[in-house]
């Protein structure tokens, strides 16, 4: 369907442009400005060029945080995408079960992010938490996310999966509901197994929503801050210090504005380029030049 060519449409877009530009351009300019200067005191600064970029790029703690971040986002996508699809497949298609399961599933998504961290502190502490207490005292497995790096990782992953799998499930469910009944009928007539029905009908038809889910989960898990900050504070040691946590540490807590700004821009470029690459790749899989 060709769209109507009309440049007056810009008038409809201006409010959005102004409001987003106000919140995006000015701060972005500020950040770029900072990243090129050394601020000695308020109103006193020296132009330092790419100095901060060099410093940040050679910071081994940043490298560690970056790998940690990739591992985290990779695991998140690996676990949440299939799990979300499974849940969507199991959800009822009609009757009172539909609103009931939608409400239940959407609930974690509407909890403020630091409350999520709080919930999981209370849930996993070895002394008072159901999970922590159960692991230590009932199953006899020592578990303490404040002392062991592995336990901290497990806790953060559990929290992340608990928190965000519902988003994937909801999107996948929407995709499933959009498949006309005739497809399922045809599959039954053609003698397709449940597996073939999934692989040749449901999965291809969910492609659009799964692309959105994949991108949203990649972006948001790559930007994760509040939940692990509340839960582990980045520790023990630096074992759960993800990029955002490290950035806030530098920019807001140590008030190193120059390196912080350079870090921000590098971070932004990484998210942007990966999202773009994924988007292009998923688009190509969708078109599927090969049969």
């Amino acid at each position: 369907m060709e769209k109507w060519p009309n440049n007056k449409a810009w008038f409809l877009v201006i409010p959005v442009f102004v409001i987003v530009a106000f919140s995006a351009f000015i701060p972005l300019m500020t950040v770029i400005n900072y990243s090129l200067q050394d601020i000695l005191a308020p109103g006193q600064s020296v132009f330092v060029g790419t100095e901060w970029y060099k410093e940040i790029l050679s910071d081994y703690r940043l490298h560690e945080a970056l790998w940690r971040q990739f591992l985290f986002s990779g695991l998140v996508l690996l676990i949440e995408m299939p799990l979300g699809i499974l849940i969507a497949l199991a959800m009822p298609k009609r009757g009172w079960g539909v609103p009931a399961s939608l409400v239940t599933i959407a609930l974690p998504l509407l909890i403020p992010w630091n409350t999520i961290g709080t919930i999981w502190i209370i849930f996993t502490r070895p002394d008072i938490g159901l999970f922590g207490f159960g692991m230590n005292n009932l199953l006899g497995i020592p578990f303490d996310h404040t002392a062991s790096s592995l336990d901290a990782w497990i806790t953060v992953m559990l929290m992340e999966v608990w928190h965000w799998t519902p988003l994937v499930a909801l999107l996948a469910y929407a995709g499933l509901r959009a498949i006309p009944e005739a497809y399922y009928q045809a599959a039954r007539i053609d003698g397709a197994s449940a597996w073939s029905t999934f692989f040749y009908i449901q999965l291809p038809k969910m492609r659009g929503v799964l692309t959105i889910a994949f991108l949203l989960r990649f972006m948001d898990s790559f930007l994760i801050y509040a939940e692990p900050f509340v839960l582990t504070g980045g520790g023990p040691g630096n074992s759960t210090t993800f990029l955002s946590i490290y950035l806030v540490k530098i920019a807001l807590l140590q008030f190193d504005l120059g390196p912080g700004a350079a870090f921000s821009l590098i971070y932004f470029v990484i998210v942007l380029s990966f999202s773009f690459i994924f988007y292009q790749a998923l688009l190509r899989v969708g078109k599927g030049e090969t049969v």
Partner: peptide, 14 residues
Amino acid sequence: TNRMAPVAVFALPF
């Protein structure tokens, strides 16, 4: 792309 900006990036300039 603004949906992809790390919120932490904008905290201080904001």
